[in-house]
Write a protein that binds this DNA or RNA. Structure first.
Length: 155
DNA sequence: GCCAACGTTGGC
DNA sequence: GCCAACGTTGGC
C-alpha cells in the first residue's frame, strides 16, 4: 500500500464535492501531465491512501483523506470534443491519458496549510517532499510513510 | 490579477 | 536535438 497527494481546485472540485458524489466516489479525470499520468496508470493501487489537497485557493493545503478504489484506466474526457480536457491526440484505441477512481474517507479536523508545511520543510520527515519545493506543479505526487504520519500528526 | 516556474510544441 | 515561444499551474 502506498500514499499519495492529489491536488484539486476547490472551486472546481473540492473535498466536499467528493463527499457528495454517489458512493462518495469519483474519477480523477483531466490530468494532462505525463508524470502524473504515469503514476496513476502504473503505480496507484486499490487501497492506496490519498491526501486530498486544495490548490489555487485562499488557504491552500491538505483538507482530507481519500482512497484509491479503481486502478488506472483510460480518461474518457480526452475523447470528448465538448469536454474542456479534450485531447484530439488521445485515441480510444491507444489512450494517452489515464485516471483512477477515489473514494472519500474523511475530512481533516482542520486544513493543514501549505504555509505551515513550508515552515516545517526542514524537518527530517519532510525531506524531499515536492509539494514544499519551489515551483512545484505536479498535481499527483507520492508521499512517503514518514511524510504521511508527520502531516496527519499535525491535525 | 500578477507573474515565476516549468512543461510542451514546433520550427529549424 | 536544440531552444524560443507559448500555455498552464498555482502561490501570493
Amino acid at each position: 500500500m502506498q500514499y499519495w497527494l492529489m491536488k484539486s481546485e476547490p472551486d472546481v472540485f473540492g473535498i466536499d464535492d467528493l463527499a457528495d458524489c454517489p458512493n462518495q466516489t469519483d474519477h480523477w479525470d483531466g490530468v494532462r501531465n505525463y508524470q502524473a499520468r504515469n503514476m496513476m496508470r502504473d503505480q496507484m493501487q486499490q487501497g492506496d491512501q490519498v491526501l486530498f489537497y486544495h490548490s489555487n485557493t485562499k488557504v491552500p493545503g491538505v483538507v482530507g483523506i481519500a482512497e484509491v478504489v479503481r486502478e488506472g484506466y483510460p480518461d474518457h474526457t480526452a475523447f470528448d470534443p465538448e469536454d474542456p480536457h479534450y485531447d484530439p491526440k488521445s485515441d480510444p484505441d491507444n489512450p494517452r491519458w489515464y485516471m483512477v477512481d477515489i473514494r472519500f474517507v474523511r475530512k481533516l479536523d482542520r486544513t493543514i496549510s501549505l504555509t505551515e508545511l513550508k515552515e516545517l520543510k526542514d524537518r527530517p520527515e519532510m525531506a524531499d517532499m515536492p509539494l514544499v519545493r519551489k515551483g512545484n506543479r505536479l498535481s499527483v505526487m507520492p508521499v512517503t510513510p514518514e511524510q504521511w504520519q508527520f502531516i496527519l500528526g499535525l491535525e
